[in-house]
């Protein structure tokens, strides 16, 4: 009698805990979903407002992007910056990681340690003043194509910032490739560059892809570096243009803002889906730092 009473009470308690748990989970899910909701509704709303509501479906808003003189250009600039930086990072990191993994050079361990330290310590916040000065200085005294308002300079700056972590991640991949593959190829007479191209690169392809995606995502979303180094609106990437769209016009054009946000976010979302489908979303020290 008392036992079944106890049991019933415990079952009811457990039920309540369960319901409470799911309610809380829902609440948290809503907390995370709410800001994102606007991103998917407003672009298709005939009269977009700040509030989230069920849209009167339309695709007219996307025409607004054509009307803005900088919108498509900034998207293109973002692509150029990301791909350019990714090239620098992937090639630079692959060569360095391979040599560091396979050849014991004096001071290698110290070098790796300093790289790891640098990559987390020298952030845009800490280095924005010297970076601004450095790039202005290079532009003034070396060549304007490397100074302020140069996309190339932005790529170099961002590649410099991402390379240490990139080398580190890639070295992990290279370290897992058994040396006997390379030794075997070497006995057959293959040259080091040949081995790198025929054997090592295909084997660390997942690593190269990871670094490329990681770089693109980082550059795509980076606001600070291009914000400081690019003044010409025709050269600014989407991250910087986005801000001018809502701070510099008196009454923000929500149709433009929402569609632009969505288009600008799509590549990142696509890459996320690709990576999580292909490798499972495991992160190497943070796919974003």
């Amino acid at each position: 009698m008392t036992i079944s009473d106890d049991d019933a009470r415990r079952a009811a308690w457990r039920m309540a805990a369960r319901i409470g748990f799911y309610a809380l989970t829902c609440l948290i899910a809503v907390f995370f979903a709410l800001p994102l909701l606007w991103l998917v509704t407003a672009p298709f709303d005939a009269s977009p407002t700040y509030a989230v509501d069920v849209p009167e479906a339309t695709l007219d808003n996307f025409a607004e992007i054509n009307a803005n003189p900088y919108a498509w250009g900034s998207m293109f600039n973002s692509i150029v910056l990301s791909i350019g930086t990714a090239l620098f990072v992937v090639v630079g990191a692959a060569l360095a990681a391979y040599a560091l993994s396979r050849v014991r050079m004096p001071g290698r361990d110290a070098l790796l340690y300093v790289l790891l330290l640098l990559s987390s310590v020298v952030t845009g916040t800490a280095a924005m003043v010297p970076l601004f000065l450095l790039v202005s200085e290079i532009g003034d005294s070396v060549h304007p194509a490397l100074g302020i308002d140069s996309s190339f300079a932005v790529m170099l700056v961002m590649a410099g910032g991402l390379l240490p972590a990139g080398i580190f991640m890639l070295k992990d991949f290279v370290d897992t490739v058994p040396r006997s593959y390379e030794e075997s190829a070497r006995v057959f007479g293959a040259s080091p560059l040949r081995i790198l191209k025929d054997i090592v690169a295909p084997l660390i392809a997942p690593g190269l892809a990871t670094i490329a995606v990681w770089t693109v995502v980082n550059v795509w979303g980076n606001f600070l570096v291009p914000f400081i180094l690019l003044r010409d609106p025709g050269k600014q990437p989407a991250a910087v243009l986005m801000r001018t769209l809502y701070t510099e016009s008196g009454q923000p054009n929500l149709a433009l803002l929402s569609t632009f946000s969505l288009l600008y976010s799509l590549p990142v979302i696509a890459m996320y889906l690709y990576v999580s489908r292909k490798y499972g979303f495991r992160f190497h020290g943070g796919i974003k730092s």
């Binding site: 060569l95 360095a96 310590v121 410099g160 390379l163």
Partner: peptide, 17 residues
Amino acid sequence: FVAPALLLIGVFLLFPA
């Protein structure tokens, strides 16, 4: 092999610091 990466890191990360 290591030089290009080190050059970029040195100029745009270490030197500014």
